[in-house]
Design a binder for these strands. Structure first.
Length: 429
RNA sequence: GGAGAGGUGUCCGAGCGGUUUAAGGAGCUGGUCUUGAAAACCAGUGAUGCGAGAGCACCGUGAGUUCGAAUCUCACCCUCUCCGCCA
């Protein structure tokens, strides 16, 4: 969400940005927002006048009553009543305009960073760097759930009966591997100076509507029946919710947090649930990182954050590449975003495992996440988020890249970094 | 889940329908005094948002009553104490 004053002063710049994102249908929103703002200001101005007058008269009534001049007081009441209807109407209008303006402002995309490549869709995303060899072994790699099944590590059939499609039981060493990855990723981030946090796994509708649009909510969020509670789709929801309508002293910045949570998603619409695999499911676990920092430091943090992801995956011997989202593929709130993709020797291509985003001050403005500078200046913070690791999905990459086959037996090699979390085990067989 | 108490400015805390433009402290800033500090005294300082400004809004949140609400009514949220239940 942009600052309406900025939009008013730079309408052409905002429109150029919309064109760069190939969202031309949003162009009229700019003028609409400006005229709503002007209207709102006018209504507000007039209402303030009426309210000032009412306050003044009310005070007089008080004084008159005190002096026992009842009749004069009654006359003054009539004066107030005479303008009551207009004021009431204006107050309704103020509210309506405010709501409408906010709605429009939320649809106007954030200004993208000049470094972001221009493009229409995800097909125009640009590969930045590859890390590690894209090895394809000389034996046929089974489908990831088949690898798991080979080690008695998964039961989707029972999960189907118990919870339905889109759930799984992880079993034995594979389940342990899953936990090991989470724990390792947690400690990895703690070593980078992040504060570990376990947030609420359910949030109120107020927070939900703050962090996503109605459409997104409908497509993702599970609601608890009879209560104003939703299961989180990612810990980012409850983590960023922690800071809604807060004022943080500048000296507390940057706030760097890494949170663990299960994530619940309906996955309604576009892609749906993948039937066989565990690539897209209703429930998974995720270690996340978020940073709240000063505006001038957000790009530096952006670069640090995606680098952490690369480093983490490389430490588990998984080849990755970074992919920069082009203007057209960038969500409205984002200034710049990299996907980290892991190499899949089975499919012979990369697939998304992390998404690192710099949201500038757009999210902070929308949610009232403010900072008080040492000189007393108040401003909106910059917010960033990135996946550390989402184990079910990363297990796919992990198993495919660390699988060995000697002609008879499959084995999974455990990279050194993970061994302490697997009770010293070097091999799963 | 039940009963009770309570949520007021940076903090403590008064106010329970009309000079409250929120008392009084504490804190903070400046000063007097002092070799310096402490103490004392004097003065200043009261969140935040909107507005060019006069001003408007804001006393947990939202609605309502009223000419006028921190103060009354209703709903909700949160905190504390006790009871119940429970990993």
């Amino acid at each position: 969400m942009l600052d309406i004053k900025f939009v008013k002063e730079n309408p052409e710049l905002v429109k150029e940005n919309i064109k760069k994102k190939f969202k031309d249908s949003k162009l009229p929103l700019v003028d609409e927002a400006i005229s709503l703002y002007d209207e709102k200001k006018a209504a507000n101005s007039r209402a303030d006048e009426l309210r000032a007058n009412r306050n003044k008269l009310s005070k007089q009534i008080g004084a008159l009553m005190g002096q026992g001049k009842k009749e004069e007081a009654e006359d003054t009441k009539k004066l107030v009543n005479a303008q009551a209807a207009e004021l009431k109407e204006l107050e309704v209008k103020e509210n309506e305009l405010e709501t409408k303006l906010k709605e429009v402002m939320m649809k106007i995309p954030n200004i993208v960073d000049p470094s972001v490549p221009v493009g229409k869709s995800d097909e125009d995303n640009v590969e930045v760097t590859k890390y590690g060899e894209q090895t394809v072994p000389d034996f046929e790699i089974p489908y990831h759930t088949d690898i798991m099944a080979h080690f008695n590590g998964i039961d989707k059939e029972a999960a189907g009966r118990v919870a339905g499609e889109g759930f799984y039981y992880l079993m034995g060493d594979i389940a342990r591997l899953h936990s090991a990855v989470t724990a390792y990723a947690r400690d990895f981030m703690i070593d980078k100076g992040f504060t570990y946090c376990i947030p609420p796994f359910m949030i109120r509708s107020r927070v939900v509507t703050g962090v996503m649009s109605f459409e997104e909510m409908d497509a993702m969020m599970y609601k608890i029946e009879g209560e104003d509670l939703y299961l989180i789709g990612t810990s980012e929801h409850s983590m960023i919710g922690k800071f809604i309508d807060t004022m943080t002293p500048e000296e507390n910045l940057p706030m760097t947090l890494t949170s663990y949570s299960p994530c619940f998603r309906k996955e309604k619409g576009a892609h749906g649930i993948e039937e066989r695999g565990i690539y897209r499911i209703h429930q998974f676990e995720k270690q996340e990182m978020i940073v709240i920092c000063k505006p001038e430091e957000s790009m530096e943090w952006f670069n640090k954050m995606w680098n952490y992801s690369v480093e983490l995956f490389r430490s588990m011997d998984i080849p990755v590449r970074t992919l920069e989202c082009c203007t057209g593929d960038l969500a409205d709130l984002k200034v710049k975003s990299y996907d980290i993709e892991a190499w899949s020797p089975k499919q012979g291509k990369y697939f998304e495992v992390c998404s690192c985003s710099n949201l500038g001050d757009a999210q902070a403005r929308r949610l009232g996440i403010r900072v008080k500078g040492e000189d007393g200046n108040k401003y909106f913070a910059h917010t960033l988020n990135n996946t550390v690791v989402a184990p079910p999905r990363m297990l796919i990459a992990f198993l495919e890249n660390n699988l060995e086959f000697d002609g008879e037996k499959y084995r999974v090699r455990i990279p050194e970094a993970l061994r302490p979390y697997m009770g010293g085990k070097e091999i799963i067989e």
